[in-house]
Design a protein around this nucleic acid. Sequence first.
DNA 1: TTGTACGCGTTATCAT
DNA 2: ATGATAACGCGTACAA
Lengths: 335, 335
Amino acid sequence: MDKINIKTLARELNLSTSTVSRAFNGATDISQQTKERILSVARERNYLPNHYASNLRDKKTQTLAVIVPEIANDFFAQAINGIEDVARTHGFYILLYRTDDNFDREVAFVNYLNNGKVDGIIMSVSGEGNDHRYLKTLEQKKVPVVFFDRVYEDIEAAKVTTNDYKSSFAATQHLIEKGCKRIACLVINKTISIGKTRTQGYIDALKRHQIPFDERLIIDCSVNDKENVELLKNRLSQLKPDGVFSSVQRLAFATYQAAYELKLNIPKKLKLISFSSLQITPLLNPPMSTITQPAYQMGVEAAKLLFETLENKDIDNRKKHVVLNSSLFIRKSSE
Amino acid sequence: MDKINIKTLARELNLSTSTVSRAFNGATDISQQTKERILSVARERNYLPNHYASNLRDKKTQTLAVIVPEIANDFFAQAINGIEDVARTHGFYILLYRTDDNFDREVAFVNYLNNGKVDGIIMSVSGEGNDHRYLKTLEQKKVPVVFFDRVYEDIEAAKVTTNDYKSSFAATQHLIEKGCKRIACLVINKTISIGKTRTQGYIDALKRHQIPFDERLIIDCSVNDKENVELLKNRLSQLKPDGVFSSVQRLAFATYQAAYELKLNIPKKLKLISFSSLQITPLLNPPMSTITQPAYQMGVEAAKLLFETLENKDIDNRKKHVVLNSSLFIRKSSE
DNA sequence: TTGTACGCGTTATCAT
DNA sequence: ATGATAACGCGTACAA
């Protein structure tokens, strides 16, 4: 029941600590025989090298921080899966942090990481705040950062995004082709990276098809689902749009709910298309047309970029920007 | 650009490392004045105590491991949110690991944690395998474990579950009351904790209502959605059940899909109720009747149990078993 | 092939 | 209120 560490184990084996250490680190300068003897006794005595002590020496944590606005969100859940799968093949583990779109939390957590806590960071930012100095200090500490989906343009770091502008343009155009004349654009924050780009795609598609632009049709929503349903019920009855382009999945569901309560038939009275990574959209009533991002693949690419710099310090990926394509799935909600 | 640590910082301040250390650890035996001076320079020079060095001394990691079968799953995503919220209030962080229901991964990860890597573990088990010795060794190392939802009965550890038996019984009974005579029971693994309990509730409800039991109606599915749809199409046409009790969310969706492809109307030809934590079930076609577990709350309770033992080593929670109630939501799919 | 000894960055203990 | 120092457990340079 005595504490077991490399020293006690070495004593039990009548060996030095260095030899024991070697047995665990794939060293070559150790006889196969002693190595096996060590490992066998170690297993028996239930010994494993202390990760924190090793890290203190090596400055290698084998750990990645993943920072996302939400977890209970199909897009991020799938992206995390992608990150995890790549991390796994590299023997890395994941420290997960959720910001709830709260900028202060993001800052606090990044600062916390700013001391060798992890080898790298993959994040999708909250999009709030303007002062991104807290991220710059990571650079000094040589902690590589990769952004995915939601990025800060003013920070030089590797980025993985989808072609949101093009998809938004295409989705809006699709609604226009289906006969919509008054299309609402639902956003959560039209000033941050994705909200901005997606709104722009919407605006430009209208312009291209000479549909008059009505500022009021860009509807700013919140992260509170109940509030959104009320807001949308209000706007839908007042502004009477015949189409909805939703830049975020949750707003599409709020629209479904609002339309249901207003007895507004989708797609007859209101056609809808939305960004969404939900895997069961076809089971909805009606099946929802979606712009679907390759969430899993984005996670994979982000992790790959990170490991490239991690494993080859010469590579500077900070100017790399991987752009993946989303897919348009047209279903009943916009037919 | 020189390395910054407590030593260099102390030198710059003309102080000793002890004093600097005190400034960061809420010590009382330090003058407010020097403390402020230290913290100010630290901020300026971007110094933060090294977490790994601190841990090496203290044996406190401020980190929790959370092990789940899946992440892209509404139940687990919400449970993780609950765990994270509690962890956050205690200043703890989360090391997340997904097993994909793979027993070997579960064993490998738990073994990896077996060296002071984290202060505690919250897990929902894969349910595979019989040899749970790898968990026993955690006990020796005093790493507390809390199970939630999917537990190993033979391991003495704190547990948080829902009353699955009762809910399953009630759900099956509900179908019977709606007139179903041949009710299928969909499970993924009828031998593990939750599969077993939920199946038993189903069986007992049949018995109670003197509905003949047909072994073939207990349908063993897999984690592969496509396979499940095929399997279910096959079984639904052959066995012609008039009701489905699905013990897992994903199997309900596979049933929706299969029924759709077979042009089998839900609920007219087939009534369905399922365990599910999906938040938009009312938007499905048809809206799905569910047994909904308090996922978020389960995460909260699990974390609370863990912190109880963590913060008071005298408390032995290993015999505690918190049972929460699920809620039955009856919607169109079973009306 | 194996052993010795130092240092990684921190904090607790003991001194001043 | 502040400083000196040992110890946490490990890996590596160097010695043998």
